[in-house]
Amino acid sequence: MSKKIHVSTTVNGESVEFLCEARQSLLEVLRENLSLTGAKEGCNNGNCGACTVMLNGVPVNSCIVLAVEVEGAAIETVEGLACHGHLHPIQKCFLEGAALQCGVCTPGFLVTAKALLDKNPNPSEHDIRFNLANNLCRCTGYDKIVKAVQAAAAELQTR
């Protein structure tokens, strides 16, 4: 066992401290030390996006980030999307549009889609497909996911 390292960071707006080994991924620590099990482990090598979280305002695959790297950083996970028990419009549109089946990929899609709509409130279908290219889904076939993001964009625009 190598020695544990102390890390202070912010997760979904709250200060968080944890101890971890250098070799542990951010995904591992979120799920196992912090009990934030929203981010999922799909491939554990950067390909599938199921583990996507926001790190200092940009989406990253948390399976290929070391937990020790996030000292002083700001992290947002899928758990931060819903507000006071109300689902975020993107979450609602995924549900209503049946944009999920097994749901393993969903947290990653939600986080990336939110990042996209924050940056580009009115994305074309191409923009959506291009920016979600690092999120893989084995079940839905993507069309419903793209439509759900479009529906969420429309709903967010009317606000």
């Binding site: 950067g46 790190l55 989406p59 695959n61 290929i64 990336t112 990042a115 290219a133 690092n134 999120n135």
Partner: peptide, 9 residues
């Protein structure tokens, strides 16, 4: 280079 999440890093 990869997708968005990869390009972030």
């Amino acid at each position: 280079v990869g997708g968005w999440q990869i390009q972030s890093r």
